[in-house]
Amino acid sequence: MGKSIVITSGKGGVGKTTTTANLGMALAQRGARVALVDADIGLRNLDVLLGLENRIVYDLVDVVEGFCRLRQALIRDKRCENLFLLPAAQTRDKTAVSPDQMRALVAELKESFDVVLIDSPAGIEQGFQNAVAGADEAVVVTTPEVSAVRDADRIIGLLEAQEFHAPRLVINRIRPAMVSRGDMMDINDILEILAIDLVGVVPEDEHIVVSTNRGEPAVLQNSSLAGRAYRNIAARLMGEDVPFLDLQSANGGLLGRLRRIFGG
């Protein structure tokens, strides 16, 4: 029996889909059998980031409505044979699926996969309720901006109310130079408000833009710093104790701060 993890955020555009695609690829490269579920129904995206759009025949709504079997709708990744995608429907909306149906669907996936990652839509409406319905754990993504952190806090409150007791945090698009100039919220500021465990910090990285356009997750490129950060997060999700990246080698600013947080 595998475990299911929802990737969620509150505020839109902070990197949930990017995170889902990269963590999925990184986990699969470590040998886990991984299924990615695109729960952003009506705003299908994950297939594009993985370069699998042209292989879609059936989608998630077809499965819950009984038009096809789950196995028929799963698309195998072209680079990694143990990575699969269940795409969202593009021509339907969130009301096409209920939380109970999502719960059943994810339970079925957990029987044949080690990890099921669910890409949540932004917001706190039914799409969010659907995405979290079948999840055992939650990863909350935020960027270092006041509004994104506020919305992450809102989501964490909703997750706690639904008995997700330890949602974990990914801080995306951090720019070490701006942080050290004091122009960007630093990791301490964010953790002080959200008060949950940090599972990774992903830097702003041009590779992400390029890889999105090419349909090649950044973890596939060794030169990408964001890709390395995602590989580390994947390892931490599997229970490994990986030190945080030194995003600012000059004076160890960011790392120094992280050390203080983790007491190491």
């Binding site: 706190i124 506020r150 919305d151 806090d153 809102r154 964490i156 409150g157 909703l158 706690e160 008060a195």
Partner: peptide, 8 residues
């Protein structure tokens, strides 16, 4: 005893 979060 808890964090009262945004929206609560």
């Amino acid at each position: 005893r808890r964090t009262v979060r945004s929206g609560q």
